[in-house]
Amino acid sequence: MNSMFAFVILDLLSLKQYRKVFFFMPLLAVLMSWYMKADSIAAILCLLCSMIACTYLFSIQEKNLLDTLYCTLSLKRSNIVIARYLSVFCIEMIAYIVGLLLITILHAFSIGIDSFRGDFIALNVGLFAISFFVSFQIPFFFRLGYQKAALIAYIPFFLPMLLISATLTLPFDIFEFVRGITNGFILYGLPVIAGIGCLGLSCMISCRLYRQKNL
């Protein structure tokens, strides 16, 4: 278990070169929310940023031949995969917490027109969406490598996300609709649990794929 946490630290260290970009993103998110008068934009941008960070892990891995490094460390292949999913989960959680802080602050200053509850649901459903997309992408990255898998795993899902986030009221309308037909409280926890479920399933597939890969 210790070596898996050590791997998470290694993963997060590999993103060091982009730290300025990641620190700048919340500021950009606030500005966009302020400009568009929609607090949920801040949360969605934070989550999108986490999705990019997750794919950067694979891009950096391939560019710097980190597969070789991983094979010299005291880790089994399956440990590497599980630890990478832990890294992804950590990045998502950081984005989630930053997103939550941002919508709280934005509401405190009454910048947006949406209710806090709606934005919170948007954040949770956004987390599920990101987890779902990342869960789809990662097995491709493990099997084919970042370059080969980018077209399959990245662009087709990134574009719809941009479109959804650009259509300001659509996420809010969807969440309100779902909230109307279900108990609203289910929406708080369920997307997060479903997102973790997706990552777990994806992790099992990736373990199998990466074990068989010739590096």
């Binding site: 070596s3 050590a6 590999s14 031949l65 980190l66 597969d67 490094l69 010299t72």
Partner: peptide, 30 residues
């Protein structure tokens, strides 16, 4: 792997890492 040291023919660390970053990244494995 805890007891072996490996040097391959091409470097396999992140280009942006310093020597200290490399230590932070790998020391916990040993």
């Amino acid at each position: 792997k805890e007891r072996i040291g490996v040097v391959m023919d091409s470097p396999y660390y992140v280009d942006a890492w310093t020597m200290l970053d490399i230590e932070h990244a790998v020391s916990s494995f040993y």
